[in-house]
Amino acid sequence: MSSGEFITSHAQAIRLFPTKLTRFRIALAAAFVLVFPFVASGYQLGLANLIFINVIAALGLNVITGFTGQISIGHGAFLGVGAYTSAYLVSVLGVPFFAAIVIAGLFTALVGSFFGVPSVRLKGLYLAIATLAAQFILEFVFRSWTSVTGGSNGMSAGSASAFGHELSGDTAFYWILLPIAALSLLFVRNLARTATGRALMAVRDHDLAAEIMGINLFRSKLIAFAIGSFLAGVAGALWGQYVGYVTPEQFTLGLSISLLVMIIVGGLGSALGCVLGAVFVTLLPEALSEGAALFVADPAAVAGTLAFLREGLFGALIIFVLVAEPAGLAARWQRIKTYWNVYPFAR
């Protein structure tokens, strides 16, 4: 049991994994994700892949909204930009898989920064509405630029191949998505420890004070949008390649909302929260379906109603979490840890 941290140097204070217990937990988690594909069914593997994609996208949104405090309701459309870019690169231009992912990320970063420019002038709800507009405008582009995106029919993402092997199936993508998600997690976790990351948080906490301390607001906000949409682009590209097909229906306002739910349920500004939120939001519909199957004798007969009920529970849960635990699951996790650290004395 860790009963206290005794920090005697700066290097100690900014360590990534400060205590033995943390390192132990990380090792445990690593062991779990490494063993998982060998014991899981194909269906569970598919869910895990979706979680990885959501983790990457949520991390991106967390840099924009959690770190920098700039609300983005258009993140789902940024995923779409990444997905369409990589699909076009792979299926039409024949660019190799990994290059396509990176280029898609960079292109999305460009698009995201463009829509982030208004954030220099607009704050809070105005920015929220501006990004909502970005969502609809991008959706319109996906639907209408038929020669490139295939319109509402969508387009094939092409067949991905790397290291001379064709990539398809859940297992192959598990081993691609896992390292990328882990790297993104490490990157965002580290970002919080750098001068740039701290500048972003200063902008969130008090923009005027940040500016007086010499932080360039324009630069910081643009960096946040660039990093956030880069990750969104990568997530979208991976999703497109994984599913094999890209349609506008994947990148609607609903996706933007569920990404926001992930980072809020997880905890704003917390990298761990993104993982918890992504796991939670991805598994919730599955859990609700399973739960419904227990109570209803013939699920197929009431499928329509059940879908709505699932939707409604999702919405109710958003409200409940925000009212009951506004700081998210990550804060709850912290509290549980503290409780056991000081066990008999905690309330």
């Binding site: 909204t65 609300i71 309701i73 809070g124 709800l125 929220a128 909302i257 926001l260 739910v261 809020i264 704003l268 109603t305 709505f308 009920l309 699932r310 939707e311 409604g312 529970l313 999702f314 919405g315 109710a316 849960l317 958003i318 409200i319 925000l322 009212v323 506004p326």
Partner: peptide, 28 residues
């Protein structure tokens, strides 16, 4: 009433959640 003074993003999410709930109830 319970989220007065919360960050703006939380309040936005509350109203979004409210919309989802209302739509689901009516749909069901």
């Amino acid at each position: 009433r319970r989220v007065i003074g919360d960050p703006i993003v939380s309040v936005i999410m509350i109203t979004l959640g409210l919309g989802i709930v209302l739509k689901a109830i009516v749909g069901a």
